[in-house]
Write a protein that binds this DNA or RNA. Structure first.
Lengths: 329, 329
DNA sequence: TTGTATGCGTTATCAG
DNA sequence: CTGATAACGCATACAA
């Protein structure tokens, strides 16, 4: 393995000079800079990130904390998009990424968790799918031990940013569009999980929308479960004009139930997963660009690591109808 | 951050002694071993893997090399299962995992690739979705610079193992079962990509099966594309008795085409992706446990890292029919 | 502007 | 069986 020492020898300068050139230090003459870069290219040198991390204590290593859905693989695409988006951006920003699943840390205490990440030389964490029952994570965020970006949860402090689409507005947009298209008066809203931050946002959106348009709103928790949405639909949809769902998976469950009941009600979903194109009926939904959300999260984390303070970052969303013809390839 | 030095002080021994205890060296007395472990627990010490990697040069860092499907997210679940299976097993085996996508390295030369992995202190690599046009990867394997496990490609040498199900047998099993159930005489086989290792295996299986049962076999490449399978079905399925597909996605494309053609032909797929449960018609398919395949790959890589020689590892498969009722939750 | 020296947290090689 | 001590590859305060 060719090291910085080899480069130094090749260029005829000191190790520290090479290091300075590589890290864009100001006080280096153009001349030596060139000499060094030539040597770097000639030897095809790539800095050892592990050693750099150990030495500088800044590491540039970040962790992706992901909550794997154990129940269905139908929405694995969401996590996959998160991962790939993050890794791409991380490479651009020269960050090293490790992927961690909730299951690996869920039984840890705050201290154990801190040590775990510290032992990996992690300096920044991106948290996906967090809800307000993840007490230890909450404490981790409050402790400000690490720079953290939380996706889709409104947690912000000096060292913590949140990124995500505007769930409130997105929920209003998709529901309002579908309501207008079908002239509905009463709504069955199948919400997500009670302890999820976005669920509250979306419920608030639906309430505001119902008030504004003077609609009857009937809310039940579907827990992001397709089966539960199916059951709720069987039970409550008949005397409603529309079924609004907080996720595509639930929308699919609702739609399939309606077909079995042999009645028609417009249904709209949320997320824009590919599965929506396969269920036969088109539905309005909110298209989130998960890879982009995740890439933005990395970008924001990088900002935090460079000393900026936490903030709230909102990303755009789109309304779409997913058709089989459009998604196959 | 509490380091090995703190532990040594706490236990009243030398740093090197602590290291020996932690790494299960033989020549340590039970007594000191206990003292050290007590100190470790008292301080809640976790070894810094980055430092360990740097020092030992053995690293225990492995890379997952994954070919992201850019066309459709319908099969993201496969990669996701690969990733989660690998990470879980890696944690068990105390290995550090980084995820790398083909897109990040596809333009590299052999040397660049070597240096890239070396710079990350990677000592082992698991390659998913490789085909025989990945020339640089082939050379990387031949060079034996790293311990490598290849999933689903029959590449083995001193430092390289391959793992995966028996695609030949699995293809025979699922096709034969479907043929028996429907008394077919002529087959449309929609194969995968020409340059894929498994494609050859499966075609061989189909040929052997056709010969054995005296069936007419008509083969076309579907390139794992749903759209292409759809077109091939429109074109060729009418005068065949059955459509056998090398992937579920193609099977879905074929089935949807048949429905539009308003004719019935039994269709069977391969992989067991969740989407199969959503298309309305049940089909036979081969269920691969991707997470398990991946976990096995990590286990095998760990063996290689510990000095064992490369070998061929075959994993079991199952035949299933995926029903909507069974997969929702 | 450049070079020297020290340390990051481990592992590993020797003495003792 | 245990303990100094030298690497590992790099960053950085400080000296030149």
């Amino acid at each position: 393995m060719v090291s910085i020492k080899d480069v130094a020898k090749e260029a005829g300068v000191a190790i520290s000079t090479v290091s300075k050139v590589l890290n864009n230090y100001p006080n280096v003459s153009e001349e030596t800079k060139e000499k060094v870069m030539e040597a770097v290219n000639r030897l095809n040198f790539v800095p050892n990130q592990v050693a750099a991390a150990l030495s500088s204590k800044k590491s540039g290593r970040i962790a992706l904390l992901i909550k794997l859905n154990m129940k269905t693989q139908a929405i694995d695409e969401i996590d996959m998009q998160y991962i790939s988006g993050a890794i791409s951006m991380a490479r651009e920003k020269q960050l090293d990424v490790i992927t961690v699943f909730y299951s690996m840390i869920e039984k840890m205490s705050l201290d154990e968790m801190r040590r775990y990440f510290a032992s990996q030389s992690i300096s920044g964490i991106i948290i996906f799918g967090m809800n307000n029952e993840d007490k230890v994570l909450l404490k981790l965020i409050e402790s400000q031990t690490f720079k953290i970006v939380v996706v889709d949860s409104p947690l912000v402090n000096e060292s913590t940013s949140c990124v995500g689409i505007n769930h409130y507005q997105a929920q209003i947009d998709v529901a309002e569009k579908t309501i207008k298209e079908n002239m509905c008066r009463s709504i069955l809203y199948i919400a997500g999980m009670k302890n999820s931050y976005v669920t509250e946002e979306k419920i608030r959106a639906m309430k505001d929308l119902a008030a504004k348009r003077k609609l009857k709103l009937f809310i039940r928790n579907g827990d992001f479960s397709e089966l539960k949405a199916r059951q709720l639909t069987f039970r409550y949809a008949k005397n409603k004009d529309i079924v609004v769902c907080a996720s595509d998976l639930m929308a699919i469950g609702a739609m399939k139930a309606l077909i079995e009941m042999d009645i028609f009600r417009p249904v709209c979903g949320f997320d824009g997963i590919i599965l929506m194109g396969y269920v036969g009926k088109q539905m309005n939904t909110v298209k989130q660009d998960f890879a982009n959300v995740s890439a933005e999260a990395v970008r924001e984390l990088n900002r935090l690591l460079n000393g900026s303070k936490g903030r709230n970052v909102r990303l755009p969303h789109k309304l779409v109808r997913m058709k089989y013809e459009d998604i196959i390839c």
